[in-house]
């Protein structure tokens, strides 16, 4: 938890959060903010450049590009969030459970995950759509299933290390239940790792929504999405070479902000790991000089020392 609070104080994280807040706002209010009907075609004004009437120009059917971008934000973002949400539920819960529910559950869970990881993304989504019908939800949930192993592995690995931590052993000696250990000692420390994974997964999902729409899977035209616009604009590259850049830039900014946030979470987690050593000066309780006590040795410091004796 402290990792996440600390993240909020980092400048890079604040920029990323601000960008994401704007994106979220557009996702909710995009349709309302759109100056024109994103579906209204005006065949007399196709493929026009920016003008007073159409701030970002029009597409091959004469629809207002700005309105379509705004209106498409929601579908693109909610799609990504939906798939990552599904992936988290399907990944984190069995990931943590695999450590406590015994060998047979662990073995089965690991095999299922291995199997899922062999499936190719796009193909699986197309197959799922083929079975369950073409629609954004079907495609996104299929994507969520495929992203789940990522969360499974990451949360399991993080918890595996923590489970052997001495303070967990100490809690077991107090007679603490599994649930309690999970809540007080594991959850808070696995959270930053999951946050990083979530940011990366959201970025992946956003791009996959785009590429699926590009293939005609998921969102049906004429409903606008960033990926769909990118796909159709590419068809008119000769007439409007700059057009694909508009949805492209939006995807890039959103994904970039997510990655920035993920990095910030990771960095502040690393800073926290190094903190016990810095405790002397950061905590202000010791003398400011690094403790002479063995436990308070910084890993980095050790590395520096290592040079002394091994060179």
């Amino acid at each position: 938890m402290r990792t996440l609070r600390r993240t909020g104080r980092m400048p890079a994280a604040r920029v990323a959060l601000a960008v994401l807040a704007v994106v979220a706002l557009l996702a909710v209010l995009g349709g309302v903010l759109a100056p024109q009907d994103p579906l209204a075609q005006d065949t007399t004004r196709v493929l026009q450049g920016p003008s007073g009437a159409h701030l970002l120009g029009t597409d091959y059917l004469g629809r207002d590009v700005l309105s379509r971008l705004l209106a498409g934000t929601g579908r693109s973002v909610f799609g990504a969030v939906e798939s990552v949400g599904a992936a988290m539920v399907l990944g984190v819960v069995p990931g943590l459970a695999s450590l406590w529910l015994g060998r047979s559950f662990e073995w089965s869970a690991l095999r299922v995950v291995d199997a899922l990881m062999t499936l190719p993304f796009t193909l699986f989504a197309i197959a799922a759509v083929g079975v369950f019908g073409n629609g954004l939800h079907q495609a996104m949930l299929a994507l969520g299933v495929l992203l789940a192993p990522l969360f499974f592995r990451v949360s399991r690995a993080a918890a595996l290390g923590l489970k052997q931590a001495q303070y967990v052993e100490a809690a077991e000696l107090m007679g603490a239940s599994r649930g309690r250990i999970l809540r007080t000692h594991i959850a808070a420390k696995v959270l930053p790792t999951i946050a990083v994974t979530t940011a990366h997964a959201l970025a992946t999902a956003l791009l996959t929504v785009a590429s699926l729409t590009f293939l005609g899977v998921g969102v049906q035209p004429p409903a606008p999405t960033w990926g769909g616009m990118l796909a159709s604009d590419l068809g008119y590259l000769a007439q409007q070479p700059w057009a694909p850049a508009l949805p492209g830039v939006l995807i890039m900014i959103t994904v970039g902000a997510l990655n920035l946030l993920a990095d910030a979470v990771r960095d502040s987690g690393a800073a926290q790991a190094a903190e016990p050593a810095a405790g002397g000066s950061a905590g202000g309780t010791s003398t400011g000089a690094p403790d002479d006590v063995p436990a308070a040795r910084d890993a980095r410091e050790r590395k520096a020392d290592e040079r002394v004796v091994t060179v």
Partner: peptide, 14 residues
């Protein structure tokens, strides 16, 4: 004692 500066002195020499 811990924090008396003895370790820092010795580290600066290394």
């Amino acid at each position: 004692e811990s924090g008396s500066g003895k370790t820092l002195t010795c580290r600066s020499l290394l």
